[in-house]
């Protein structure tokens, strides 16, 4: 039962090859195998959205996928938004969250940002209602969401490009 499966996956432009158990969740693979701890784990059953990452440019929940299923795919995590790690080089969506106070404790923020990147790419000028529906799968217990919506509107105004 402890058969290992080899997987090769591109994360933020770097290709990693590892042998893992089939039951290893993608979120745990990113955090424990690759030390990319920016992807947060909240509920671990697909309710809270904190673990949202991009797979082939589409938002998915990494806690309800197995790592082996990412074999051959391209992933983007929150670390991919600021590749050099320099705070001066934050992604425009990150800057907008900063400016509009779209976060307090920050635990849910990576999930929000990764959910919003493809959304803004497809809906460059979203209405308030569209923003609310887009983030309906992400829970935030600090902000009350209003400032997140303000941040998304600001980012849209700035025409945030994709990473």
């Amino acid at each position: 039962m402890d058969n290992l499966h080899t997987l090769s996956v591109n994360v933020n432009g770097v290709t990693y090859t590892r042998a893992v158990e089939a039951r290893l969740l993608l979120s745990d693979f990113l955090r424990h195998e690759l030390n990319l701890t920016g992807t947060h784990v909240g509920c671990e059953h697909g309710s809270c959205g904190a673990c949202t990452i991009l797979m082939d440019d589409q938002a998915v929940r990494s806690c309800i996928m197995f790592a082996v299923q990412s074999n051959g795919h391209t992933l983007t995590t929150i670390e991919g938004l600021t590749p050099d790690g320099n705070m001066q080089h934050l992604h425009p969506l990150q800057t907008a969250f900063h400016e509009k106070h779209g976060l307090q404790c920050g635990y849910c923020t990576p999930g929000f940002l990764m959910t919003l990147l493809p959304f803004l790419a497809e809906n460059p000028h979203p209405s308030d209602q569209e923003i609310r529906e887009a983030i309906s799968g992400n829970l935030c217990r600090c902000t009350g969401y209003q400032n997140i919506i303000e941040a998304v509107k600001l980012a849209a105004q700035k025409k945030a490009p994709r990473p």
Partner: peptide, 12 residues
Amino acid sequence: MPHIAHPQIRNR
């Protein structure tokens, strides 16, 4: 479709 969970879920 929009009634079924959230975009992240519908992607899978």
